[in-house]
C-alpha cells in the first residue's frame, strides 16, 4: 500500500534515474544504427514503457547499473519492434546485426569508461577553435550540413569531409585518454 508521499517519491526517483541514464539509452539505440528521428521516437516509447513498468522493477544493489540494464532490455525490444515497421527504409541494418551491435555497446561499457565524458571534454578543449566551431555548427545549430554548406558556398560533401576529419581526431584523442586513465589504474 503506497501513500501519496511514497508515490511522489517513487516518481521523483524514476525521473532522476531516467534522466541520468537517458543519454546512455540514446547511445545504445543510436549504436544499433537508427537515425535521429527514429532514436527520438524509440526513446519516447521506452520512457513510457519503463514508467508503466516501474512498479515491477526491483531495484538491485546498484540502482543505476540495474536501471540502465533494464532500460536497455526494453530499448532493444523496442528498437527491433520499430525496425520491423521501417524495414524497407534505406540503410537499416538487418536484425541480427542490430543485436550484435547492441552487444558491442554493452561490451564496450563493460570495459569501463566512466571517464568518457571527461575525456571528451578535454579533447574538445584541445581542438583548434575553428574545429570546435565546426562541431558546434554541425551538432548544436539548427541548420543541416547541406544548409551550412550552402551558406558558405561549399559542397556538403566537402563539409562532411572536414567534419569526418575532426570527428576522427576526436575519437583517437578520446581513445588515447581513456586507455591512459585506465592504465593509471585510477
Amino acid at each position: 500500500m503506497m501513500n501519496l508521499s511514497d508515490n511522489s517519491d517513487s516518481e521523483e526517483r524514476f525521473v532522476q534515474l531516467f534522466a541520468r541514464n537517458e543519454r546512455q539509452l540514446r547511445i545504445f539505440v543510436r549504436s544499433m544504427g537508427l537515425d535521429w528521428t527514429a532514436v527520438d521516437d524509440v526513446i519516447q516509447t521506452v520512457s513510457l514503457v519503463m514508467w508503466r513498468k516501474w512498479d515491477e522493477f526491483e531495484v538491485g544493489e546498484d540502482p543505476e547499473v540495474d536501471f540502465l540494464k533494464w532500460g536497455r532490455v526494453i530499448a532493444r525490444f523496442e528498437v527491433l519492434k520499430f525496425r520491423r515497421k521501417m524495414a524497407r527504409d534505406r540503410h537499416v541494418f538487418d536484425e541480427d546485426l542490430m543485436k550484435k551491435l547492441a552487444e558491442a555497446t554493452e561490451a564496450s561499457d563493460a570495459n569501463g569508461n566512466d571517464h568518457y565524458r571527461e575525456a571528451l571534454a578535454e579533447c574538445l578543449k584541445k581542438l583548434p577553435e575553428k574545429s570546435n566551431a565546426m562541431i558546434s555548427a554541425a551538432y548544436q545549430g539548427d541548420r543541416t550540413i547541406r544548409e551550412l554548406a550552402g551558406d558558405i558556398g561549399k559542397s556538403a560533401t566537402a563539409l562532411y569531409k572536414v567534419l569526418d576529419r575532426i570527428r576522427k581526431s576526436l575519437q583517437s584523442c578520446i581513445e588515447a585518454r581513456i586507455s591512459a586513465t585506465e592504465g593509471r589504474g585510477a
Binding site: 543519454r23 540514446r26 547511445i27 543510436r30 549504436s31 544504427g33 535521429w36 550484435k100 551491435l101 552487444e103 558491442a104 555497446t105 561490451a107 564496450s108 568518457y116 565524458r117 571528451l120 562541431i135 551538432y139 570527428r167 576526436l170 575519437q171 578520446i174 581513445e175
Partner: peptide, 15 residues
C-alpha cells in the same frame, strides 16, 4: 562493431 558503438557514442554525446 565496437568502433561503430564508440562512434555512435561520440555522435550522441556531441549532439
Amino acid at each position: 562493431r565496437l568502433k561503430y558503438a564508440s562512434l555512435a557514442r561520440l555522435d550522441t554525446e556531441l549532439r
